[in-house]
Amino acid sequence: MKVINFSESNSLYNNFLAQLRDLKVQQDRMRFRRNLERLGEINAYELSKVLDYKSEDIYSPLGVAPSNLVAEHPVIATILRAGLPLHQGFLNYFDSADNCFISAYRKHTTADEFEVEVEYMSSPSLEGKTVVLTDPMLASGMSMVLAYKALLRKGKPKHVHVSCVIASAEGVEYVKRNLPENTTIWVGAIDDEMTAQSYIVPGLGDAGDLAFGSKED
């Protein structure tokens, strides 16, 4: 399974990610959402390089321009709610893509223990499709694996691209163990630590709350 870590090379991705982590910048909720969207756009552009292409003649007013075009846009799947701005970034570039939305949440049994439950999914058929599964934070990896298993109800994808902004090293290893080999992980940074409550350190905090406001459990 291939892991592509944007922090291992120099690009504007690192600037926007640094702003997402910054306590002062995080006070601007709209800017936080926009930076997530920007990272989705950058990821979409880089991911587009590994898709299948087809040759097509485009007719301009003055002639014919042979063009190499994406053969089929991927299905963009997102774990609600934190993934919505990242999802929008992908959709800005894959503007004719079909979409899938998955509701997953932490059901706490104690203060430090929880189970992840998938409650709802809206999706087209995924049989033989390329799927981009987005969630800003890949902590324990449980939500991502359960989301993938939920996707299988709609068919077996030919390839899955997992897109995260920040992951824990433990979460990446969990996904590598539990998702098939035809999976690519795209991540902005991999942090080494994770708390007992499965929050990534240094991470950036709760992406959903920072994007959309705090919630009651």
Rank of each mutant, 00 (worst) to 15 (best):
N92F: 10
R81F: 03
F32H: 07
G40I: 13
T78N: 11
D112R: 06
R33L: 07
R31S: 13
S11G: 06
S123R: 11
R29S: 09
A71N: 08
T110H: 02
R81Q: 04
A77I: 12
M30Y: 00
G40M: 11
P61C: 03
I42N: 09
S11P: 07
V70L: 07
L12Y: 03
L23G: 15
E8Y: 02
S103M: 06
F90S: 03
G83R: 08
M121Q: 14
V116C: 14
R106E: 01
D112V: 06
E113W: 02
L69T: 09
E41I: 12
E117G: 03
L20D: 01
N14C: 05
K49Q: 11
Y105T: 00
V75R: 11
L51E: 01
M30R: 13
N10K: 05
N99P: 05
E72P: 06
R21Q: 08
A77D: 02
M30P: 02
D28R: 12
A111I: 15
N10P: 02
R34S: 14
N99C: 12
E41D: 08
L20K: 12
R33C: 11
R31L: 14
V64S: 01
L39M: 13
V50S: 07
S55T: 15
K24C: 09
E46L: 06
L51R: 07
M121K: 13
D52W: 04
S7H: 12
S67R: 04
A44M: 12
Y59W: 00
C100V: 14
V116R: 15
M30W: 01
L17E: 02
R31Q: 15
N92I: 07
V116T: 15
Q19P: 05
L47N: 12
T110F: 00
L86F: 06
N43H: 08
G40H: 13
L17I: 11
L36N: 15
N14M: 05
K107T: 03
V64E: 00
R33N: 10
L47P: 08
N68W: 00
S96Q: 14
S9F: 02
R29G: 12
A111C: 04
E117P: 04
R81T: 04
I79G: 04
N68D: 03
T110I: 05
D28K: 09
N43K: 05
N99Q: 09
